[in-house]
């Protein structure tokens, strides 16, 4: 399965509405701080075979309000190493920010028809999802430009660093003028 910035192809793990961050990573694992350690326990309570059977590039698909509850960034971090993209009808706001901040791709789209095990191809440039199993096509809801800039930078830290570099370059250019 492939994962590049704009194109992601993978197998679907389908979840329902209101998947909370306790379900993504239980509280007892919050002492762990690395994505590798956390990934071993992703969805442990609600999908016990996920961590052992997920293949790099697999796609998490869910309904409404994915990632509700605790602000733990351990939740998107537990998914980042293996999950190519999370597609949901809607996201809870803190999870959404955290995912974008750490560079875990997330998109909003009507996921009603997508089924567990489907193979999807996501084209972020065109804003389309192709369901290769069902031979169907879905349209991704576009994000505001401000959020797209952070996603394109690969997360909030690279975004801030790029911006700081840009500013200091501008400052240097002004000085040399």
């Amino acid at each position: 399965m492939t994962r590049s910035k704009a194109h992601i192809t993978g197998r679907v793990w389908k979840f329902g509405d209101n998947v909370d961050t306790d379900a993504i990573i239980p509280g007892k694992y919050l002492v762990l701080n690395s994505s590798q350690d956390l990934a071993k326990h992703a969805f442990e309570n609600v999908r016990p075979n996920f961590a052992s059977q997920v293949i790099k590039g697999d796609i998490v698909v869910a309904g409404e309000n994915f990632g509700c509850g605790s602000s733990r960034e351990h939740a998107p971090l537990a998914l980042k190493d293996n999950v190519g993209i999370v597609i949901a009808r809607s996201f809870a706001r803190i999870f959404f920010r955290n995912a974008i901040d750490i560079g875990l791709p997330v998109v909003e789209c009507d996921t009603t028809e997508i089924e567990d095990g489907d193979i999807l191809h996501v084209d972020l440039e065109k804003g389309k999802i192709y369901n290769e199993t069902q031979k169907k096509e879905y349209t991704i809801s576009p994000f505001p430009a401000f959020i797209r800039n952070i996603i394109e930078a690969g997360g909030l830290v690279p975004y801030i660093k790029n911006r700081a570099q840009l500013k200091s370059r501008e400052a240097r250019e002004l000085e040399t003028d």
């Binding site: 602000s71 803190i94 920010r97 955290n98 901040d101 401000f146 909030l156 830290v157 801030i160």
Partner: peptide, 18 residues
């Protein structure tokens, strides 16, 4: 409002957040 750790790290560094 509650934020994740990266948002917090950025705020700790700059005193600002979006």
């Amino acid at each position: 409002t509650g934020v994740g750790s990266t948002d917090m790290g950025v705020a700790l560094a700059s005193g600002k957040l979006w």
